[in-house]
Amino acid sequence: MALFGQTIICGFLMGGVYAVIAIGMTLILGVMKIINIGHGHLMMVAMYVCFALFTSLGLHPYIAMFVAMPCLFGIGYLLQRYSIHRVRFVDTILPQTQVLLTLAIGLVFVEIIRVIFKSDFRSVYTPFSSKCLYIGDMSISLPQLISFGIAMAFVAGLHILLTRTDFGRSIRATAQDLDAAKYMGVDALRVSSLTFGLGMALAAAGGALLLPIFYLFPDIGVPFTIKALIITILGGAGSTVGALSGGLVFGMAESLGAVYWAPGYKDVVGFVIFLLVLLFMPGGLKTVIKR
């Protein structure tokens, strides 16, 4: 019983952090139909920003986050405006050109970071990193709990932004029907650039939340890109509630897979969920939740 409880706690807390990373992707995929394979790589850039602030000024990642997020917002905005957008509306033989472009952009960022920080492993370790609360035989990691709390705050904030503000409405309008939104006077390029920036800022937040409990090296991004994609598909593109529930379900599935199947196979659990959702529930969890 303690084992089951512990597994669920681990999965749940991790799922919260996954959700923040995925929510950036769901925004980008939902609004712009851009599959951003460089998502994890850009999150890695944010983690390095936090790491640099930690080593130079001693700022804890939870504070450095508020520097990393604007940085990544800027990078995301510029990327969309001057690079990805360009390819999006060029008539190409392959419609998936933008997927490959984000892949190549990701490679460039990895190499830039590698030139600056080398391939060494880094981490931000403070004694606080392994503080725990104990309920009977089960433990709850305090930094993970705080990360989870901050993650929930971001999800709630984004949800409010999307549903209650004009900017949010124009984002959702662009997501629903690009042409109609244009006729209604929405500046699609501006909206998409801002959305991309916002997505990247959320990825940066996810990275910053991850930093105290994980570690850092330039190639860290790929598994996170894949996890974010799985969660996005699971939750349904464009839905904050979907990404949140997707993240939690995915985190727990991974955790249960590692305990009751095998730690080596736990990633397969995610892929199987991914394929099943794509095939049999194309709208993701959001279709279920809406009902």
Binding site: A2, L3, P223, E254, L256, V259, P263, K266
Partner: peptide, 20 residues
């Protein structure tokens, strides 16, 4: 007696199983 993926982000589930 299990192998694990060294890129794994959270190894706690495995360690919980070890503890059990």
């Amino acid at each position: 007696d299990e192998p694990y993926d060294s890129d794994a982000i959270d190894l706690k589930p495995m360690l919980a199983a070890v503890k059990a």
